[in-house]
Simulated assay, not measured.
Amino acid sequence: MTHILLIEDDAGTANEIMLELADNGYVVTHRTLAAEGLATAQTEHVDLLIVDRQLPDGEGLDLIAQLRSEGRRTPALVLSALGSLDDRVRGLRVGGDDYLPKPFALIELLARVGALLRRPNETRDTRLIVGPLDLDLLATTATRAGRALELLPRELKLLDYLVRRPGEIVTRSMLLQDVWGYTFEPNSNVVDVHMGRLRRKVDADGEVQLIRNVRGRGYVFDVPD
Rank of each mutant, 00 (worst) to 15 (best):
L138C: 08
L116G: 01
Y99C: 06
F221I: 11
G71V: 05
E108N: 06
P224V: 14
G146I: 03
E44L: 10
L133Q: 06
M174V: 08
A81R: 10
L100F: 00
R124A: 12
V193P: 01
L137W: 04
D97I: 07
L151Y: 03
D47Y: 09
L77V: 04
D178N: 14
R72N: 10
K157M: 05
D222C: 08
T140C: 09
G167E: 12
L116H: 01
V28D: 00
I7V: 15
L63Y: 01
G146P: 04
R53T: 10
L82W: 12
D136Q: 13
N213T: 15
R119S: 10
N15L: 14
V208S: 11
Q177F: 01
H30A: 08
R215Q: 13
D192F: 08
H30T: 09
E168Y: 02
Y182Q: 09
R127H: 13
L85M: 15
G95S: 11
P56K: 02
V78Q: 08
N189F: 05
E122K: 09
Q54S: 15
D160E: 12
G206Q: 09
H3S: 14
G71M: 03
G114M: 04
A145V: 03
L210W: 00
L138T: 13
V89E: 08
V179K: 12
V223C: 07
L55F: 00
E44N: 06
L79S: 11
L38T: 07
L117K: 08
E8T: 08
L48Q: 02
T2M: 10
L63D: 02
G96R: 00
P103C: 09
I17C: 04
V191S: 01
E8A: 06
L21N: 03
L110S: 11
V94W: 01
E108R: 11
L133M: 05
D23A: 14
L55Y: 00
E44Y: 02
R119C: 06
D57M: 06
V179T: 09
K102R: 15
K102D: 10
R127N: 09
V130R: 14
D86A: 14
S84W: 08
I64A: 00
R197Q: 11
L38I: 07
W180G: 09
L133A: 05
L198V: 10
L135I: 03
A145W: 03
D9I: 08
A14S: 15
V113W: 00
A22D: 13
L92M: 15
K157F: 00
E70D: 13
T140G: 01
T32F: 10
D47Q: 11
D125R: 14
L175P: 05
F221C: 10
G196Y: 06
E8F: 03
L61T: 01
Q209K: 13
L210I: 00
L79D: 09
T2Y: 04
R88G: 05
V202I: 05
V163H: 08
G58Q: 10
P132E: 07
L152A: 08
T32S: 15
N24T: 14
R127F: 07
R154E: 05
H3T: 14
H30P: 04
P56S: 01
G216N: 13
L100T: 04
G83D: 06
L210V: 00
N24L: 13
